Simulated scan of single mutants.
Amino acid sequence: MNGLQEMIFISEIALQSKIAQRAAECLKANENSFDKIEVWSSIQSILVAAANVSKILWSSNKKYEKRGERLRQILRVEKENILSDRKFRNHFEHYDDRIEEWFCNNSNGVYIDLAMNPSFPGRTLNNNHRGYNSFDNTLVFRDQSLDLNEVLKALEDILNNCKPHTLT
């Protein structure tokens, strides 16, 4: 990988990090409006931007592993960074598969999706599929959770490490 390629990849990482930051600002601005479309649009934008950074830094294509290693070295990103795990992005990107799997393995007809504040006291997580807790900025997929604050912090750290390597 030459210097121009490095600069282009780092610029793309910076752009995706800024997109996630903007989406987080929109999410925060809409937390009291209860506009589901705005909330889920912002969440999806954060997940997609984080996944785009992840794909650059941890390519699933063996052919590009060295690229990721080199960029992580330049940007001082630990191999086990939270962005290396694409589980939540995959839950949302492959939601059609998750629906099929659910109905193959569950006979009951209860299906709750896009829940707002599903872990708020008094509510149960048992049949929630996708949920967002605005109180602690946590995303829920069935029995798993993801702290969006941690994702955004990781992107912010990477963005700060990008600055010396990008054109202004």
Results as ranks from 00 to 15, higher is better:
Leu152Val: 03
His129Pro: 06
Glu150Arg: 15
Ser134Leu: 02
Met116Phe: 08
Ser145Thr: 14
Ser145Trp: 12
Gly122Glu: 05
Asn133Met: 05
Leu114Gly: 00
Asn126Phe: 14
Asn117Met: 01
Tyr132Pro: 01
Asn128Trp: 05
Gly109Trp: 12
Asn108Lys: 08
Thr124Pro: 09
Leu146Asp: 02
Asp143Ala: 13
Ser119Tyr: 10
Asn128Cys: 14
Asn137Ile: 03
Ile112Asn: 08
Gly109Lys: 14
Pro121Ser: 09
Asn128Asp: 11
Ala115Arg: 07
Asn126Arg: 15
Pro121Thr: 07
Leu139Thr: 00
Asp147Val: 06
Leu152Ser: 04
Asp136Ala: 01
Leu139Pro: 01
Asn128Pro: 04
Leu125Arg: 09
Gln144Phe: 14
Asn108Ile: 09
Arg123Phe: 10
Gln144Met: 13
Phe120Leu: 11
Tyr132Asp: 00
Ala115Ser: 12
Leu148Lys: 01
Gly122Leu: 06
Thr138Glu: 06
Leu139Met: 05
Asp147Asn: 15
Asp143Val: 08
Met116Ser: 09
Asp136His: 05
Pro121Cys: 03
Asp143Ile: 12
Asp147Phe: 11
Gly131Gln: 02
Asn149Pro: 04
Asp147Cys: 13
Ile112His: 10
Ser134Ile: 02
Pro118Gly: 04
Arg130Val: 04
Asn133Ile: 02
Gly131Cys: 07
Tyr111Thr: 04
Ser145Val: 10
Asn108Ser: 09
Asn133Glu: 06
Asn127Glu: 14
Tyr132Met: 01
Ser134Asn: 05
Asp113Phe: 05
Ser119Asn: 15
Val110Met: 13
Val110Gln: 09
Asp147Ala: 14
Asn128Lys: 12
Ala115Met: 13
Gln144Leu: 14
Pro118Phe: 00
Val151Glu: 01
Leu114Tyr: 11
Gly122Pro: 03
Val110Glu: 07
Phe141Asp: 02
Phe141Cys: 05
Arg123Ile: 04
Thr138Cys: 07
Ser145Leu: 10
Gly131Leu: 03
Ser145Ile: 10
Asn137Ala: 05
Asp113Asn: 13
Asn137Pro: 06
Tyr132Arg: 00
Val151Gln: 05
Phe135Asp: 09
Asn149Met: 05
Asn108Cys: 08
Asp143Thr: 14
Arg123Glu: 09
Thr124Ile: 11
Arg142Trp: 14
Glu150Val: 07
Phe135Ile: 08
Leu146Ala: 04
Asn137Thr: 05
Thr124Leu: 13
Gly122Ala: 06
Asp143Tyr: 15
Gly122Lys: 06
Asn137Gly: 00
Val140Ile: 13
Asn126Asp: 15
Arg123Trp: 10
Asp143Pro: 12
Leu114Asp: 02
Asn133Trp: 03
Leu146Tyr: 06
Asn133Tyr: 03
Gly109Leu: 13
Thr124Glu: 14
Pro121His: 08
Thr124Ser: 15
Phe120Asn: 08
Arg123Gln: 12
Arg123His: 11
Thr124Lys: 12
Val140Ser: 10
Val110His: 10
Leu125Gln: 11
Tyr132Ile: 00
Val110Phe: 11
Tyr111Ile: 07
Phe135Gly: 09
Asn126Ile: 13
Ile112Leu: 13
Asn133Gln: 08
Leu139Arg: 00
Val151Pro: 03
Pro121Tyr: 09
Asn149Tyr: 04
Asn133Asp: 10
Pro118Ala: 01
Ser145Met: 12
Gly122Trp: 06
